[in-house]
Simulated scan of single mutants.
Amino acid sequence: MRRRTALAGALVLTTGLALTGCSSGGAPVLEVTGAFMPQPVSDMAAGFLVVRNSGGADRLTSVTSPLSDHVSIHETKDRVMRMVTSFEVPAGGQLDLERGGNHLMFTGLKERPRQGDTVPVELHFEKAGRIAVDVPVKETTYNPRKQ
């Protein structure tokens, strides 16, 4: 009987440790895909992309680009846009920045990129650090969800 109790206790302890290890999520493993910027028609532009995370949770905290000294991250809820300080990139999930939703906002453009150009952007994450992305400029009406 003692042997079964000891075995059951060891099994519970091992299972608990395994679950604790899973819940911490570990380091984020980030991949950026689907980036694009519609060709701007003024001194402002928007940027869209997907950040896939196959590791632990992280946060997008800021964005920089030589295109503008003022790049911010914007949330859209109930068709109202507002600047936010960060976006969560969930463990094992993704952050979608897409038309009609959350996005990057470039204001006071130093130049107006044209369709076919690429815009260098650096995404800053709380844990993963910086990720450089070359964002292709698409036609003004481009929307990959409608392709």
Rank of each mutant, 00 (worst) to 15 (best):
R79F: 00
L49C: 08
S72V: 12
V41M: 04
L60Q: 10
P66H: 06
S62F: 04
S54E: 08
M44I: 10
S42F: 01
V84E: 15
S42V: 11
M81A: 14
T76R: 13
T64Q: 10
S42T: 07
P66N: 11
V63Y: 02
T76E: 12
V71N: 10
Q39V: 06
S68D: 13
D78A: 14
V63I: 09
A35I: 05
P40T: 04
I73V: 15
T33S: 15
F48K: 02
L60W: 00
N53R: 09
T64Y: 07
E31S: 01
V63Q: 11
T64E: 15
L60H: 08
D78I: 01
R59T: 12
H74T: 03
R82W: 02
E75Q: 14
V63D: 01
S72M: 13
R79P: 00
V80R: 15
S54N: 10
S54D: 11
G47E: 08
M37I: 12
L60F: 05
K77W: 12
G34N: 15
R59Y: 15
A45P: 03
L67H: 04
S65C: 08
S65R: 10
H74G: 02
V32P: 00
L67N: 06
T61H: 01
F48M: 12
M81C: 06
P40W: 07
S62Q: 13
T76D: 06
P38C: 06
V32A: 00
D43V: 14
G47Q: 05
H74Y: 02
G55K: 08
F48V: 03
S62C: 08
R52K: 13
D43P: 00
S72I: 02
A46Q: 09
V41D: 11
T76N: 15
I73A: 12
M83Q: 15
K77P: 06
I73Y: 11
V51D: 04
T76Q: 14
S54A: 13
V84L: 14
S62E: 14
H74V: 07
H74W: 12
N53T: 03
A45S: 08
A46N: 11
K77I: 09
S65M: 02
V80L: 15
I73H: 09
D43F: 07
E31R: 11
G56R: 12
R79S: 03
D69F: 13
T33Q: 05
D78C: 01
L30V: 13
R59M: 06
A57R: 08
S65K: 09
E31W: 01
S62A: 15
M81W: 01
F48D: 00
L60C: 05
K77C: 13
P40K: 14
M81S: 14
S72N: 07
V84D: 15
M83I: 04
A35V: 10
E31M: 04
V84F: 15
P40L: 13
V50L: 11
S68G: 01
D69C: 01
L30W: 02
D69S: 02
Q39N: 12
L49A: 12
G55M: 05
S68L: 03
A46I: 00
P38V: 06
R82Y: 10
D69V: 11
R82F: 10
T33Y: 05
V71L: 10
P38H: 05
S42P: 00
S68W: 04
A45N: 05
S42Y: 00
V84T: 06
V63A: 03
F36H: 14
P66C: 10
P40D: 07
I73P: 08
G47C: 09
S62P: 05
G55W: 05
I73T: 13
V51M: 01
